[in-house]
Design a protein around this nucleic acid. Structure first.
Length: 576
RNA sequence: CGGGAUGUGGCGCAGUUGGUAGCGCACCUGCUUUGGGAGCAGGGGGUCGCACGUUCAAAUCGUGUCAUCCCGACCA
């Protein structure tokens, strides 16, 4: 491909709408363009690279015995009424009508479609097990799309669905697919981990998320450095700090401490010169059953997911400042667990119950209270684990330490069991002639997200730096003086030689200054450059510049140069 | 959906107390250049997101609205 005839609108400056390095680079390198929040076009260069990634995914899926198909992106809403998910999905499901006034939606996922399809076309246990997959669009009307392809409304996903005769079969299909994921993400060079997850809207009995560890990730997980325990921060548990009760017979009474204008734990702890661990914070929430007070140690955060489950509520929000003033009879920042008005539940963390004395708010402006004793000065309705795991916490299973890390969720695999096949009545006859529902699994990979995550990893200050197996081109021929007849002839020849030998080559024949061309070729992520200019031509040498290392190699003849390019092209190279 | 920020040629930005818009890059023409974002000369392009209002006069002030981005609640 000649650069001058291709379409690569590169940008010299960072676009202001992008914040992640990968997002900036995809825009600058002319890989993608945004049309609306969360809606992107893949430009030729990005599309070419994306297709290479898709083909690697395809290979691993096919190796695992999955079969590719493509289902409709526009779906009759009726399908979603059958499963009942038209209601569950809410506003994420984009609905519209056709000219006959029939209801349709853009597919946010494909469980209904595949269950319908297989239900209508598979009738016997002899045709099972079966795993089908596709790589194409999904649309979710996200409340907040962001970070480029990382969270888009319209996005590309690989989704696979397995159909088995029983749970044992599902276990086997699930195991195979998990193995395929492991192979794939290892091959792509990611540092990843599976964690057990909530099944969310998709549902089912068991699910695991494939998390890639990245400082730019939006999700936090906790990993034990000893036993390998891992969980999302929402569900992670750690061993609490439960000190031995003091032996002393003295029972100090609650004592007021003046803390003028000191509201946050940090401020009070700094003012009184006492560790945050000695404080208990009291947070007021509002829920559909009324106000709830929750307490954790001063240096900790409340885990609202745990709190919701314990309190058995669906809605949980921090109470408004006005309500807090009414409940605690003090301005926000001085709440304590005693004498609270209009509180339905007091829920305290196990650590609060376990320690004898705490410093809390005094429910009075500019005062805190010392020697507050659980059970004496206030009574909790429920004591439970409602704390968020902190980096360095002790693992509940072993003596190891928990590390909290940022991650990006690139895959999610589910055991659906009969969730969809039963509501949609999709099944088969078993060997005894009895009607059974399919036992299903589903397996997703965010392809666009994975693509961007690759660029996040494989890039540097000069631009995108992808390995050959996913780079848009393997090599570029950069003609520094396209007006020089001699140089032009040599560059033309090398270009056509490489084309003939099947190398994916970009020929930068533009009549621009040398610097622009070299910078562009670095930016857009071409792993190798053959640089043709007077300097090397005079010495009868051919120069190959390796993008990853910045090293320059010189060859006396074209055969050696071509051999080197072929050799380099064969390396998968997903090693940083 | 709540909180915050920003909308000015293609891109990135400046524009003071209101007086009718400018810079860099990109683009077009010509010449000279070509080893890391070239030089000279000439040139084109903006009803300042949109609407309404205040004013003799609005990019600038007010109200509303839309879009984009960031933080939070959800997700691949």
């Amino acid at each position: 491909m000649r650069y001058s005839q291709f379409f690569i609108p590169s940008l010299k400056e960072d676009p202001k709408e992008a914040v992640l390095q990968s997002h900036k680079l995809m825009l600058r390198a002319g890989y993608v363009r945004q049309f609306s929040g969360g809606i992107y076009a893949y430009l030729p260069l990005g599309y070419k690279s994306l297709k290479k990634l898709e083909n690697i995914i395809r290979e691993e899926m096919n190796n695992a015995g999955a079969i590719e198909l493509s289902m409709p992106f526009v779906q009759p809403l009726e399908l979603w009424k059958q499963s009942g998910r038209d209601k569950d999905y809410g506003k994420e499901l984009l609905r519209f009508k056709d000219r006959q006034d029939r209801d349709f939606c853009l597919a946010p996922t494909y469980e209904e479609a595949i269950t319908d399809l297989v239900g209508k076309n598979v009738h016997s246990y002899k045709e099972l097990p079966l795993t089908l997959y596709q790589i194409h669009l999904k649309f979710r009307d996200e409340m907040r799309p962001r970070y480029g392809l990382m969270r888009a409304k319209e996005f590309i996903m690989k989704d696979a669905y397995s159909f088995d005769i029983d749970s044992e079969g599902l276990d086997e299909s699930y195991r195979k697919m998990k193995k395929a994921y492991t192979n794939l993400f290892k091959r792509l060079g990611f540092d990843f981990i599976f964690i057990k997850a909530d099944s969310g809207e998709i549902g089912g009995s068991y699910s695991e998320e494939l998390m890639v560890i990245s400082e730019y990730g939006e999700d936090k997980i906790a990993i034990c450095n000893n036993c390998g325990y891992s969980a999302s921060l929402e569900s992670a548990v750690s061993a609490g700090n439960f000190p031995e009760p003091l032996k002393s017979c003295r029972q100090p009474k609650m004592t007021k401490l003046a803390t003028p204008d000191k509201k946050t734990i940090e401020e009070v702890s700094g003012y009184l010169k006492i560790d945050a661990e000695s404080f208990a914070k009291t947070i007021i929430y509002e829920s559909e059953i009324g106000f709830i007070a929750a307490m954790v140690r001063g240096d900790r955060e409340i885990n609202e997911h745990k709190l919701k489950k314990i309190a058995e509520v669906k809605e949980l929000n921090l109470a408004k400042e006005k309500d807090i003033e009414n409940i605690t009879c003090a301005p926000c920042g001085f709440a304590g667990p005693f004498g609270l008005q209009n509180i339905k539940l007091i829920i305290i963390d196990e650590e609060i119950q376990a320690q004898e004395y705490w410093i809390t708010g005094a429910n009075e402006k500019d005062f805190h209270m010392a020697n507050v004793k659980p059970g004496r000065d206030f009574i909790a309705d429920i004591t439970a684990d409602i704390r968020t795991v902190k980096d360095g916490d002790i693992c509940l299973r072993c003596a190891g330490r928990l590390n909290v890390k940022n991650t990006i969720e690139l895959g999610h695999i589910f055991k659906l069991e009969e969730k969809y096949s039963s509501v949609m009545d999709a099944g088969f006859l078993d060997e005894k002639g009895i009607n059974k529902h399919f036992v299903m699994g589903c397996y997703g990979i965010g392809v666009g997200r994975t693509f961007q995550a690759l660029i996040e990893i494989f890039s540097d200050e000069n631009g995108i730096n992808l390995p050959v197996s996913v780079s848009p081109f393997a090599v570029s021929v950069v003609s520094l003086n396209p007006n020089d007849e001699n140089i032009k002839n040599i560059a033309d020849k090398i270009y056509s030689d490489l084309l003939k030998s099947g190398i994916d080559v970009l020929y930068d024949d533009r009549k621009l200054s040398a610097g622009v061309k070299l910078k562009d070729n670095d930016l857009i992520g071409i792993p190798m450059k053959i640089i043709i200019g007077n300097k090397t031509i005079k010495e009868n040498k051919f120069e190959l510049s390796i993008r990853k290392t910045g090293e320059k190699e010189f060859y006396d003849n074209l055969e050696d140069l071509y051999a080197r390019i072929k050799e380099f092209s064969l390396i998968d190279g997903f090693i940083k």
